[in-house]
Write a protein that binds this DNA or RNA. Structure first.
Lengths: 203, 203
DNA sequence: TTAACTTCCGATCGATCGGTCGCTATAGTC
DNA sequence: GACTATAGCGACCGATCGATCGGAAGTTAA
């Protein structure tokens, strides 16, 4: 509430902050974390620039907060639902399927497509905390893929000569291609293609 | 030359324009086509903003010129050297290998990595001529891949049940993964991984 | 009731954005 | 040599950028 209504309490301040971060995630998926500007974001939320920036201190801190929030959404959508599955190929397949539907359907949260791909491409030629943060995220996810791939190989669910890191590399490329097909071409057959490629990779 | 030296002739004006576009390509691969700004570009080249913009009329025209130039470089590096190879699997393999070395080595021209990936991600959530241009480029390249894949299938160089569009989709994802591995992680094993994945895809 | 604290706003900052204007110096044309 | 066309410059435009500041409004704890 604004205007004549009472100001936010401390608890509501946190909700304001959450609102800002949530909107930042959506806008950044469209325009990137640099294309996201304080002025437009504040106008979009109906608050002042200074009131907005007061929650973070700097644009970079806001960018990091948005990235962290997006990471939490991604984890909740992709990794957590598969956490209880049997480690190895079973859990890996569950994660991969979640990953596809995440790219396919989370358009309400990320209208401009996977924020991580956007940010990775945007910051891979720069230096600083944001670049480090996005690199850390991708490293972590790749490591998790490798873990389950290794388990699957040891359990005989994948050919003995499978290189887990090789396969993880190919999986990530597959998802980047899927994201582009959806965002740039609106290709509705892309998810099916990804599943088909996955079946072949994990056969 | 500036200052006391003679002004550019008409022919030299074209060279000035080329210099601007060439520098734009390099800077845009680092910062994107939106992150590219007239002021910094002009300062970088040692000319005035108005003198620079006079060659194009608008930033968008400059962006399109840079994209066109990058496309010419890519075509000369990847497609033309393989143009005379035998259509089908032979030519396809030549193109794929060129594509890898292009991502691996063209860092003098594209210090920030593949400009097309950058632009595609940057503009996939927007509208306008730049988005249409980048989409057209990717469509064209994918179509060319499909053509050779189809020839290869008909010639029996690939399994009869191969879906050319499916394979082209996987190839493009592979290259996006390669570009990220190089730019974000400096992974020197990524080209070898890409070749290995290629061998399996085109076996 | 008061004092300390916090949220948020309005005003403002210097810098930079893309873009326009009139001008000068030169090149090409006759 | 006169005339026209053009490349490039310097000054400037309104808008917006990220960021800072002091103060108003409100909450919390004493």
């Amino acid at each position: 509430m604004r205007g004549m209504s009472p100001r936010n309490s401390f608890a509501e301040a946190r909700r304001t902050r959450d609102r800002i971060v949530e909107r930042s995630v959506a806008l950044a998926s469209l325009e990137g974390l640099e294309g996201l500007t304080i002025g437009r974001l504040a106008a979009d939320l109906g608050i002042s620039k200074s009131g907005l920036l007061g929650h973070f201190g700097s644009k970079e801190a806001l960018q990091l907060a948005a990235l962290e929030r997006a990471s939490a959404i991604f984890t909740a959508s992709v990794w957590e639902p598969a956490a209880d599955a049997r480690p190895g190929l079973t859990r890996l397949r569950a994660v991969c399927e979640r990953w596809i539907t995440y790219l396919e359907r989370e358009r309400a949260v990320f209208p401009g497509g996977c924020l991580f791909t956007t940010v990775a491409v945007e910051f891979d030629g720069r230096e600083g905390p944001v670049r480090e943060a996005i690199a850390r995220l991708f490293s972590m996810w790749r490591r998790r893929l490798v873990v389950d791939l290794r388990i699957a190989v040891r359990a005989g669910e994948l050919p003995r000569d499978t290189d887990p890191r090789q396969l993880a590399f190919e999986l990530i490329g597959l998802y980047m291609g899927l994201n582009q097909a959806i965002q740039l071409f609106g290709d509705r057959r892309a998810p099916a293609r990804t599943r088909r490629a996955l079946d072949r990779l994990l056969a």
